[in-house]
Design a protein around this nucleic acid. Structure first.
Lengths: 345, 345
DNA sequence: TGCGGGGATGTGAGCGGTCACAATCCCCCC
DNA sequence: GGGGGGATTGTGACCGCTCACATCCCCGCA
């Protein structure tokens, strides 16, 4: 299982550079690490030797003594989903200058599989881990994580001691709900995400609260699994109920599925039923009709997650919870006043 | 810039384990590496010491001597796009057991930025790199990559010596075009991807070839940038031309944008214009109307990319180009015979 | 009773860097 | 002309592991 002997000779090491430049290995090291107190002339000599030899410092050797890997791990469930993919992208963009980012997808989100992923990363020597697995089970597992490593959860609020950066899901859902109520709808139905997902739960709470504030009746909850397919399936159920005039969906794909189900049942959007999504995926503006939705700034979230993690890495006690990112409501045409208000059919 | 002193004492090392187990460090190493010739009793002793101490081998130290990092790098352009995200996911799932996968996104795909990414990875010591950046510029840069490292390009065919695993884009586009032609359309328009993207070009070729084979007139090419927004923008242009009855789009989001533009101009899909996409994103089945499209098996592609890369890592000369993955045509309802055939308006 | 030989284990030398510390060197000032 | 003192450079130890090799033990066989 050894690596084949690639290339002609063994790659140059620091001593080779030192020899060629006529200095000691330590001086080469100084040049490499931008130490002051190296004569410009000497530095130039070393630099020349480095390029001539095509020398590249050995990361493992350096790590062995500095104890820094400049690597962090990101654990995610399914990076094919727009949300996780965007967060991952945001993290990577933010980390690029200072860290390598290593990824791991947890096949399921039970305690075991999440903890295994953390363990794997710890074995690799990552300096910290960001977790995009906002399920209650995962969060519980992480809260009592046996591995001593800086950890940040991402996407939704978690309780201490587990640090997190979050979008204010509850507020987002509340704003959307109030908007629909404000349009004149008697009440708003909610097609939620899977029960054990924290952000799904937060959105449910926000929706409920807005309903309660307005004194509106709280319809039964219907939940999907984030996919358009589930939105479509549950959509048929929703479409049967003629009293439904407004539906808040927990993400955009489900809204898409719902709209298709609605259309198949001959119920028009927004004339008969108003639909609002969550996320603002790039395609949302081109749905038929264009989807009114709650935009999340995943890039910003990624940046904050990184900041928080770095804070944790360098100062164990930086435990002040970060402000949640507020989502932005994007009004397009999938939501409108109900027929009872406009007077139309 | 040193790491803070996390935890109470320094983590246990091999010698600690050896001492506790009453053996030499070498024996511990043997146990760790599943060497034969260790008495079961001794092995048990060592294992016990390991768990008692919570010992975890130091990856850097091991790498330093074995020269293996068990890490590979994936360079991608925008992992937010469905295609790249899925490929990345596929790679990660396939690699999980044997490698860590490190990611890097190239902000642009010029020579410089791609080569920088490879260089960064080389500095980290990855054993190989998979590149999901199928632009001509990137491929050219990679073909003459100065860094001696196993490299596999992903998504579309490249010319040797750069290895690649590919989807047969040309054939896919040809099949879709023939399908539309077979439906009775006089010709098929094509809303292509950006010019410098290899897979976009391959699809254009396939489309052209199918047209030529059928003796159909070849309309001017219209190209977008993969986004629904660009599909929408170009869609308006296409919608103006009443002679257009069938459009093959180079991916699904552009098809979505196109359909919206069409609908705004009062042209129905598929009655007035047939639309076919490419990729089969999970949402495609829920577009209005459901999109007929060419499905790509990105997971399989990821697996193959990994296989190829591993082949390259262990046997420099395994240079037989892999068979391209054939996409699967998925018929839904966005394409139909033209009005001239059905006799309707 | 002595010897060959293989299994089990120990010993010491690196792997390629960085760190702490020592050794120079140079310049300035008394 | 000699003594700081800072800038510059060199020396050797050491990070934690694996590798090559030496050693030791025990058994079978002559």
């Amino acid at each position: 299982m050894a690596l084949p002997d690639r290339g002609r000779t063994r790659p140059p090491v620091m001593t080779d550079v030192a020899q060629l430049a006529g200095v000691s290995h330590q001086t080469v090291s100084r040049v490499l690490n931008d130490h002051p107190n190296v004569r410009p002339q000497t530095r130039a000599l070393v630099l020349a030797a480095i390029t001539e030899l095509g020398y590249r410092p050995n990361a493992a050797a350096r790590t062995l003594v500095t104890r820094r890997t400049h690597t962090l791990g990101v654990i995610s469930f399914d990076t094919t989903l727009y949300g996780p993919a965007s967060m991952l992208y945001g993290i990577e963009r933010a980390a690029q200058d200072n860290y390598f980012v290593s990824i791991a997808s947890a096949p399921t989100l039970d305690r075991r599989s999440v903890l295994d992923a953390v363990d794997r990363f710890a074995g690799q020597g990552v300096e910290g881990v960001i977790v995009i697995v906002p399920q209650t089970s995962a969060v519980e597992a992480l809260t009592s994580c046996p591995v001593d490593i800086p950890l940040v959860a991402m996407g939704c609020r978690t309780s201490p001691p587990l640090q997190s950066v979050a979008v204010d899901n509850a507020e987002g859902a509340a704003v959307a709900t109030r908007y629909l109520l404000g349009l004149g709808h008697r009440t708003v139905h909610h097609l939620s995400g899977p029960p054990s997902w924290l952000d799904a739960e937060a959105r449910v709470e926000g929706w409920q609260q807005a309903l309660r504030e307005a004194g509106a009746e709280e319809p039964d909850l219907v939940s999907g699994d984030w996919s358009a397919a589930s939105g479509y399936a549950m959509g048929h159920q929703i479409a049967q109920d003629d009293s439904v005039t407004a539906v808040l969906c927990a993400n955009d794909p489900m809204a898409l599925g719902l709209m298709r189900a609605l259309s198949e049942r001959g119920r028009r959007v927004p004339e008969d039923v108003s639909v609002v999504g969550f996320d603002d995926i790039p395609e949302a503006a081109y749905f038929l009709p264009p989807l009114t939705t709650m935009r999340q700034d995943f890039g910003e979230l990624g940046r904050r997650a990184l900041d928080t993690l770095v804070g944790l890495i360098f100062d164990r006690d930086a435990t002040e919870p970060a402000e949640p990112v507020v989502p932005e409501f994007v009004v397009r045409s999938s939501a409108a006043p109900p027929a009872s208000v406009t007077g139309a059919t």
